[in-house]
Computed example of a mutant assay.
Amino acid sequence: MNDPRIIIALDFPDAKQALDLTAKLDPASCRVKVGKELFTAAGPQLVEKLMDNGFEVFLDLKFHDIPSTVAGACKAAAGLGVWMMNIHALGGRKMLTAAREAVPVGNTRLIAVTLLTSMGSEDMNEIGLKGDPQDVVQRLALLARDCGLDGVVASALEAPMLRKMMGESFCLVTPGIRPADVSQGDQKRVTSPCQAIENGADYLVIGRPVTQAEDPVGMLRRLNEEIGELKDGQGLSA
């Protein structure tokens, strides 16, 4: 599998737990995501260790600050050699453009977070974001594309609309993925892996359904098989 669709979220408090899990996984079957908690605890050294072990890393730090600060952070992240990183689209045009200039189009993909999948309409109203989630996601995704970013992080529920608007080359990364028989946790806008792929997602971020499974390797295999069957049945590209 040359381009694994699944990105395992290593949402652990320390490097040991992350490395213990990834020691069981085949880098050919998934990529891995390092977020704020783990990166704060373990730092760039863990990212480098994961890459030494063969994994491509999505550095999920959602940079959101003044343009010069975000540009510097993005340049440093790209210097680690990560496969993908993200910034927050709510930082605005100047910040997005500065990040793109700091990370030229190439080996490291630069994508933007649109709206956190934990947020619903009530949460948006409370912070002054008008419209329903799809309206906000659409505006932010268009802004990200206009600034030259490679794609966005968005709920799979918004993926059909985004795929139609953005075309096939725009990368869609979808968190909030839960197998049908697994609890939604604190996510509000969720879909199953197969539904996310059908909706147009390129990559699926999956955390607890795999990391907290009794058999993480078996669960990952099951999810990859389901996606593979979907591709075989519908002629989806890898």
Rank of each mutant, 00 (worst) to 15 (best):
D14F: 02
T97D: 04
I111S: 11
A102L: 10
P13A: 06
V34D: 03
V47W: 00
P27Q: 05
N86F: 06
T22A: 01
K94N: 12
G81R: 10
A89Y: 11
T97L: 05
L10D: 02
G35R: 13
V70I: 06
K49V: 09
A76L: 10
I66C: 04
M85P: 15
L116A: 02
R109A: 15
D11K: 07
I111D: 12
R31V: 04
L116V: 09
P13G: 03
L61H: 10
F12A: 00
E56I: 03
A77L: 06
V47T: 05
W83K: 01
P44R: 04
L96S: 04
L61V: 10
R109H: 12
A28Y: 03
E101F: 02
S118D: 15
E37C: 06
D20Q: 09
P27D: 07
P104S: 11
L61E: 08
A77H: 07
N107K: 10
P104M: 10
T22F: 00
L25P: 08
T69V: 15
F55G: 00
L96T: 05
Q17M: 05
A28W: 03
M95T: 15
T97C: 03
A23C: 07
C30Y: 05
R100S: 09
A15D: 00
F12H: 01
M85Q: 15
F39Q: 04
N53F: 07
